[in-house]
Amino acid sequence: MGSAEVALIVVAIVAVAVLVLVSLARRLDRLHRREATSRATLEAQLVRRAEAAIAVAESGILDPAGALIVADAGWRAAVESERLVGEDTVGEHSVAAAEARGLVESELTRALRGALGAESDQRRIAEDPDGVALLARLAHHAYRVQLARRFHNDAVVQIRHIRRSPVIRAFRLAGRAPMPRPFEMDDALDVLDPTAPSAGPPS
């Protein structure tokens, strides 16, 4: 085999390696963009859930103590808590901010569980004409939060998996992009949707 053939083989190998690296870099970039989009979606859904909770608390359909607790937790989630998107969501600050936000959102979930009670209690709330719309709105946004968090965490898991690859690490294909973290919170909230066909009439 002459030097020309060897050179061609080397060029071909280098070209294939470059194509593989470019493909990996593009895939990783798409995953990071998907994670950023899912994080923004999750942020929006969390705020909407908090706003729906505040509306329930202010409606008068809950007992006064429960309404006060839900209103306070909803206000902290919607207004006072750290955001998941924005200029300050990079680095160590973002980790602490996400953890703090998760605790605030978990407190809102627990406040709603305590105030709404079991399904039978929620059916009594739904006997109020205002309660039907308010419960339906809250149920919708509580479910959307669960979906948004699942999609976001799935994207994070994929990124963390691919970034553990020796090739990704050796060639620094992730650049300076921070390693994303899953968003942890208690989102186990079953809210009766009186408008859903399976909910049946209030009893």
Rank of each mutant, 00 (worst) to 15 (best):
M1S: 12
V6C: 07
V6M: 13
A7L: 14
L8I: 10
I9C: 06
I9V: 15
V10M: 07
V10Q: 07
A12V: 10
A12W: 03
V16W: 08
V16K: 05
V18W: 11
L19F: 12
L21N: 05
L24D: 04
A25H: 15
A25K: 09
R26G: 12
R27S: 15
R27N: 13
L28V: 06
D29Q: 10
H32R: 12
R34L: 14
E35T: 10
A36K: 04
A40W: 00
E43N: 13
E43W: 12
Q45D: 11
L46K: 01
L46N: 00
V47W: 03
E51S: 04
E51I: 01
E51Y: 03
A52H: 01
I54A: 03
S59C: 07
I61F: 04
L62I: 04
L62H: 02
A65T: 15
A65P: 03
A65G: 14
G66W: 07
G74R: 01
R76W: 03
S81Q: 14
E82Y: 12
V85I: 15
E87L: 13
T89C: 09
V95Q: 06
E99S: 13
A100D: 10
E105C: 13
E107K: 09
L108T: 00
L108E: 02
L108P: 01
T109M: 05
T109W: 00
R110N: 09
R110K: 12
A111I: 07
R113C: 10
R113E: 11
A115T: 05
L116T: 02
G117W: 10
S120T: 14
R123N: 04
G131A: 00
G131V: 01
V132R: 14
A133H: 13
A136Y: 02
R137D: 11
A139N: 04
A139Y: 00
Y143K: 11
Y143L: 15
R149S: 07
R149G: 02
R150Y: 12
V156W: 01
I159L: 13
I159A: 07
H161S: 14
H161G: 10
I162A: 07
S165D: 15
R169S: 10
F171V: 11
R172Q: 14
L173E: 03
A174W: 02
G175L: 08
R176C: 04
A177D: 08
P180G: 04
R181L: 14
R181I: 06
E184M: 07
A188M: 11
L189S: 01
V191E: 01
L192F: 02
L192H: 03
P194Q: 02
T195F: 04
